[in-house]
Design a protein around this nucleic acid. Structure first.
Lengths: 354, 354
DNA sequence: ACACCCATAGCAAGCGCTTACTGCGCCGCG
DNA sequence: CGCGGCGCAGTAAGCGCTTGCTATGGGTGT
């Protein structure tokens, strides 16, 4: 039924060892022999059995990419960039094309699913794992994930944390930490400089590291201007989805009509905020300024174009891909900070004179 | 270094065959023995080697999910639903948790990448493959993909086409065909019934089956009202992205100021259309009606809420997941039509009296 | 002419697991 | 009291591939 190495060997009149060596190109083989083998491979449409190869060579060409929400472009962009980088691999002399297979796993932000996927990847003896996005902030879960990743690392799986706080792992791992705190602080700082004094904030999901960091940055900026007191009242919970922005804006407006600006924890929610404001005939930015976070592709194109904080998602994903395949050196200390850059656009302006 | 079956066996004082049987639970094992084995598994933190198991049992727990654009929620939703269904699997008596590993592969709509991923999956002897989204319409490529999928199917890999036209495969495959044509026809029909006579259309990417089908549906509706003549002038090319909608709207407005409605090939582009109209101080729907396709989550929440065609993406993805894992019967004939339902919302209204 | 060496190719031992098939007590029944 | 049968556990033969080591044969150096 399925063609094996031995079939190819027979057809080419050589031993299976020779075929293997031709395919892997790591051992001298006479040109004439190589040609004969390659022809046999062609004719038989041979495709190597990855499981057998993995078993024998104790390697694997699977790389796992864990994401919190595959339907969110934030993750889609990173995952896509990482996958492209991972699939690229070396040109591969052989016949079947090189590169590794990136496995995008959707945890849905659920800690248990995260652990399950990690185990599944461990089963497959994955060559590497990239974990993207904010971590659930739960002591028990953090311990479990740390243990699992440590185990993977010591077993030789490369670990890359992308957009997530570093973890004290046994083996060595690389972390691309996003400067959520700094970005959020600059963003709110920008609003404060414009003269806003009543700024609402819509957070991400509870107990997620990104949520906390962004909120902390926001609070820091407020504190620097002596505005910490009112912060709690002007903060409402959300979950990064558009609807949360919509609802959050309604809630904030009800709570504090004096509001002149709303910051959402991400761009998607910010769009929801804009929708809510439009519905109330409040103009952006004349009546209320709005700001987001992430600088997703649609943000520049929104009406008005969204002031936000750019996270170089594509680059970060690509870099994570290179790190996990060993094509890029791990940064000293294992941690690299990914900068978050303030992008001022049309959705923010000085508050209306009141 | 890494723990093997034999290690567990030694620790439990049994043979490795017994351990295997405990883990797979398909052979009688005395309770006392089972308990001892499970304890050893715990203590040693044993995790089965998927490659070895796959090799020995000629099975695999990988399922590939090919998507055209992982950053697009259209695919994200389907992939997420499919993955959840695939990972679920049987409760798995054993220790390490059951279910299969769904591999989301991002082809970027590139035919070559599609083939590459298919080969990679073939290498891993994937248990199944779900191919989502429109197919590239190129004879050569269609031939190649058909051949590859046929090969996979005869080798025992389950094939599911989701949102893509059926293919004449050797083995048996299931197809979930989206009624793009019918949906588009009803959508444009709705606009025509409202009284619109000058309707612009912004297409998806060239040479993609979904693009063609949706456009055909649109044209059919026009023809039914004797409006086919002007269709070419009122059609501009796009690529499903927001920016294409923005640009397309500008182009259409320039070409045909008499326009009273614009249909975009998907919701994302429709949002771009709205942005362009707003920028020109054209009100939606009073001045120009706008319609999209897909009914992505943000569409209901846009301002104004978007009239569109709902594709049950989540359900379809989940069903594809069940089909590919054999948990659902393949429909008679191998093909099931997924209905596309018109959703009338605030972005469409009768044209302004002129 | 002889010992050697290098370039190739083959041999065979696994990699870690599954699964026939065999083995071994112990029961019930004639 | 003996025999078939049953319930478990062990033996061992691979699954398809990689790779260290061995074998061969022609070219070199002296």
């Amino acid at each position: 039924m399925t063609v094996t190495l031995a079939d190819v060997a027979a057809r080419a009149g050589v031993s299976s060892a020779t075929v293997s060596r031709v395919l892997n190109g790591n051992y001298p083989v006479a040109d004439s022999t190589r040609a004969r083998v390659l022809r046999a491979v062609e004719e038989l449409e041979y495709v190597v059995n990855g499981q057998a190869r993995g078993l024998a060579a104790a390697t694997s060409d699977l790389v796992g990419v864990l994401v919190n929400d595959i339907a969110d472009p934030f993750f889609g962009i990173m995952a896509g960039a990482a996958q492209a980088e991972i699939a690229h691999g070396s040109p591969a002399s052989g016949g079947t094309g090189g590169g590794k297979l990136a496995v995008v796993c959707n945890t849905g932000g659920c800690p248990k699913a995260e652990l399950t996927y990690l185990t599944l990847l461990q089963r497959q003896r994955a060559a590497g794992v990239i974990v993207t996005g904010g971590a659930a902030e739960d002591a028990e879960h953090t311990r479990a994930v740390t243990a699992k990743l440590s185990r993977l690392a010591t077993d030789g799986t490369r670990i890359v944390l992308c957009g997530r706080p570093p973890l004290p792992l046994d083996g060595d791992a690389a972390t691309l930490a996003f400067d959520n705190r700094g970005g959020a602080r600059r963003l709110t700082g920008h609003l404060l400089e414009l003269g806003h004094r009543h700024i609402g904030y819509i957070t991400g999901p509870k107990d997620r590291s990104t949520t906390r960091h962004r909120l902390e940055g926001h609070r820091t900026a407020l504190a620097e201007h002596g505005l910490a007191a009112d912060a709690d009242r002007l903060t409402v919970g959300g979950d990064y989805h558009r609807h949360a922005g919509y609802q959050g804006a309604c809630e904030l407006l009800a709570r504090a009509p004096e509001l002149t600006a709303i910051v959402a924890a991400n761009d998607t929610a910010a769009l929801g905020v804009c929708a809510a404001l439009r519905e109330r005939d409040l103009r952006v930015p004349q009546d209320v300024s709005v700001a987001g976070f992430d600088d997703l592709p649609f943000s520049v194109d929104a009406a008005p174009a969204l002031t936000t904080v750019r996270l170089p998602l594509h680059e970060a994903g690509a870099r994570a891909g290179r790190l996990v395949t060993g094509r890029e050196e791990v940064p000293p200390g294992g941690i690299a900070m990914v900068t978050a850059q303030l992008v001022r656009r049309a959705s923010t302006a000085p508050p209306r004179a009141s």
